[in-house]
């Protein structure tokens, strides 16, 4: 399945998704990030460089997290999309909704 590793520096939360983000684990993923937002995270950086694929449930979870971050005055940035994952974002036009970055450094610098 998948694992999520988190790093927290002040209000910056970085989450790396290893494996898949799919219907079977998206609720856990959402809750993990929601809990961090509750505890003050406002800059949310999601790293998918270790992610095999994301299904529609996973994409939906990202939409929900971005809204929540925005509602709390924060922002959500995404990095590490391989060519296949980028195709998914383009097909669903989510590349127009999210801020996508080539590297973690770029994503952090843009907050």
């Amino acid at each position: 399945m998948a694992s999520f590793s988190t790093e927290r520096e002040g209000d910056l939360l970085t989450v790396a998704v290893e494996g898949q983000l799919v219907v079977g684990n998206r609720a856990d993923f959402k809750q993990l990030v929601f809990d961090q937002i509750e505890s003050g995270a406002r800059r949310i950086l999601l790293d998918f460089s270790g992610t095999a694929y994301i299904d529609s449930s996973g994409l939906g979870a990202l939409v929900s997290l971005a809204k929540r971050a925005r509602d709390e005055g924060g922002a959500l940035h995404i990095t590490g999309l391989n060519e296949d994952l980028r195709t998914l974002f383009e097909l669903t036009r989510l590349d127009t909704l999210f801020k996508l970055f080539a590297t973690r450094g770029d994503a952090r610098a843009a907050f």
Binding site: D55, S56, G60, S64, T92, L94, T96
Partner: peptide, 16 residues
């Protein structure tokens, strides 16, 4: 629909 959480599954089946 862009900012809705659900509803992309059938679309992706057709697209892929």
């Amino acid at each position: 629909w862009l900012e809705r959480e659900d509803g992309r599954g059938v679309f992706l089946m057709y697209a892929l």
